[in-house]
Design a protein around this nucleic acid. Sequence first.
DNA 1: GTAAGTGCAAATGATTTGCACAGCG
DNA 2: CGCTGTGCAAATCATTTGCACTTAC
Lengths: 155, 155
Amino acid sequence: MPTPRRSQDDKLKAFRKVCKQLGLKLTHQRLQILDVVASARHHPSAEEVFERVRTGMPTVSFDTVYRTLALFERHGLVARVSHLDDRTRYDPNLGPHYHLVCTQCRRIWDFDWPALGQLEAPHDTEGWGRIEGRYLELRGICQQCLRKQEEGFTV
Amino acid sequence: MPTPRRSQDDKLKAFRKVCKQLGLKLTHQRLQILDVVASARHHPSAEEVFERVRTGMPTVSFDTVYRTLALFERHGLVARVSHLDDRTRYDPNLGPHYHLVCTQCRRIWDFDWPALGQLEAPHDTEGWGRIEGRYLELRGICQQCLRKQEEGFTV
DNA sequence: GTAAGTGCAAATGATTTGCACAGCG
DNA sequence: CGCTGTGCAAATCATTTGCACTTAC
């Protein structure tokens, strides 16, 4: 599933639409940043985007990059990789296991999934390098948070 | 796979051993922090550990907690959840897909794994709440970094 | 022309570090 | 008693925000 080559055009089209709907401006900076992100192959960090955009536009500021990436994320043009939270969490369970993560209260539960352990990695990944570990999260809302929602404490 | 109840004793034993081997000291603080982490059910953040330890030891400092957690991690007593890197990375590919992550160069590749998509979540997770998404990473070392290692540029 | 966007610099929040005192071995 | 640990405060790093100027529409 590499990002299709015409991804940039699709994104641009989508972004134009979003801008028109919401009265946002199609600035030079936004177009450049969009182009860099849409054509990037390895999920760049904000800094990498900044550096690449700067090549053709030496005056961009780092915070415009941050603001713009946040804008894109808000409107479904890009997603953040992983990172649900900004603080590190520690796990005393060192055996192989996976995590259930509540996106509301941020608590984490462990679970096991033997069938996944037995599933062979797909062909796509052959020749990539040496795979050493699997990290999987199931994300959702835990029972307790669901109940709170129903009771109207949240939202 | 919840952390077994006797996890604390096991950890303590392991930690005593590490200390003896390396000449580290078994301080009050370390023992408390170990106890809190080993008995925690939801993979606490450093702050949560700090708060809990503070209950019984009002003078602990936040940085002792950080230092001690890092120590535990270094000696294989706890692991960090997720977080390979501290910077956010952005992904223009919004369709369902998974990631190959090189722990050396930190680049990220996308891949698809239909068989995983078809695999039903295990019984363990029933009744947990509402699961809304799956996030999976295969971690390892990419071809390019492996080659560099062989050539002796690294290590 | 005007509201939205940008660049700058300063603020924030998590985590780390330098240093002098404290306590384990 | 000596060397490792600790607590404090200041430093660092990624990211965010307030503000006055700029620009797309």
